[in-house]
Design a protein around this nucleic acid. Structure first.
Lengths: 223, 223
DNA sequence: TCAACAGGATTGTCTGACATTCTTGCAATC
DNA sequence: GATTGCAAGAATGTCAGACAATCCTGTTGA
């Protein structure tokens, strides 16, 4: 028997469901940044008791998806551009490394998966559904991260991306951003498929640089 | 008035105290890796109610300092060497970057603080108090991370270091490790004080490489 | 020897309660 | 008119107690 085969079935608990539902709600932009979350309302909407809800909120707080100020309760953090920049910088560090590692170790079968997700993004890019664009782009990246050979790298990256999910929809809806994004992602894919780690790193860096610029542009326009 | 001056006083809540106490207990090695934490016992020991304790546990779970399996409750994760390696790798990525940035932007006053903490480590290294060694070494690094100009980098790094705190005491108590650690840290300090980012990165990389090797050695000996 | 089972221990979850703190609107004062 | 002070209402922080579902363990029976 494989030694570390984890067959434990995990019954889904109320708290897990609650965390997932809330996380999804945050990603989809249901709550405005800066808005406060009232516990009693959330209890009613989610159909859970206050202790269960509060446990879920603590989890999200530790993930930095919500803020909790004593005696003021939970709220959606309004990310400043400085904070977003800090996140983009660390994300670049991780993503570039992941792309490089991925290029030299990804199995053939996963390359095909990556190609499939690139096609999915291509299709989304030609539509005007910016939510679908964000989702498929996220899929593309999660395949790269899943094949970088370091689960911690993947996990930290996921946490960071979650925190800037608000920006991604914005910048993707900029005129022409989806198309140029597609070109950049195709470069990354080509490099990984060719097993060229150096090129993959370079392409990932360029992509992130442009994504950051697009995010800044969309933010400035907003303000 | 400075725009982002955060004057809000934060009353310490029971949940914060609980998280801090538990975190400290984990760091100091009070709980054996793999051991289970029984809620009712912790409630008695900490003097808090079960809902408050469970909120605190959820926070620690999200930080990966404890594991929670449904219907089995919380436990201290027993880190495998593979997981530890993954953490060390990401830590290297972050730490090297931080050292480089720090070298080119740290203010003079903080250089003196860094020097002070290096002296503190020197003193601890000449003793045989491995806990003091770990603490002072952590201080040294936290000054570097605090001056790298990226709070997210600092925050992610802190989370990772916390997860391998168990190893640090071990490896530091290896014969001669503290002394060679001191030499490596002095190299980092010299490079930062001289404002040489390239040298700082190289020194940080070398230090982490050796720390990882020491951790592996101490683990192998244990097993 | 091994499988089934019963009992206790532990967790997951809820209800209800109350003190403390924050918010907000209104009145009073300068 | 602007500011201060205050009081009511809302929301949070925290606790106690309860009960069902699940896990663990030792015993019984084949």
């Amino acid at each position: 028997m494989p030694p570390d085969l984890n067959l434990r079935i995990s019954p889904r608990t109320v708290q897990q469901e609650t965390v997932d539902k809330l996380r999804q709600a945050i990603f989809s932009g249901l709550f405005q940044p800066g808005s406060r979350l009232v516990e009693s309302q959330l209890c009613l909407q989610l159909g859970v008791s206050r202790p269960s809800l509060r446990e879920a909120l603590r989890s999200l707080q530790a993930e930095r998806l919500i803020e909790m100020i004593p005696n003021r309760g939970p709220s959606i953090p309004a990310l400043s551009w400085e904070e977003a920049t800090a996140i983009y910088e660390v994300r670049e560090l991780l993503e570039v490394e992941a792309a490089g590692r991925c290029a030299s170790r990804i199995p053939e079968q996963q390359v095909r998966e990556l190609e499939k997700s690139l096609s999915a993004f291509e299709q989304a890019a030609s539509s005007h559904d910016s939510l679908a664009q964000v989702m498929t782009a996220a899929d593309f990246y999660s395949i790269i991260l899943a094949n970088c050979g370091n689960p911690v790298l993947e996990e930290v990256h996921r946490g960071l991306v979650a925190r800037i999910s608000f920006f991604r929809g914005r910048s993707m809806s900029l005129e022409g951003r989806a198309r140029s994004s597609l070109a950049e992602m195709r470069d990354i894919f080509e490099a990984i498929a060719a097993g060229d780690a150096t090129a993959a790193r370079k392409a990932a860096r360029r992509h992130l640089f442009k994504a950051k610029a697009a995010a800044k542009m969309s933010m400035d326009r907003e303000a």
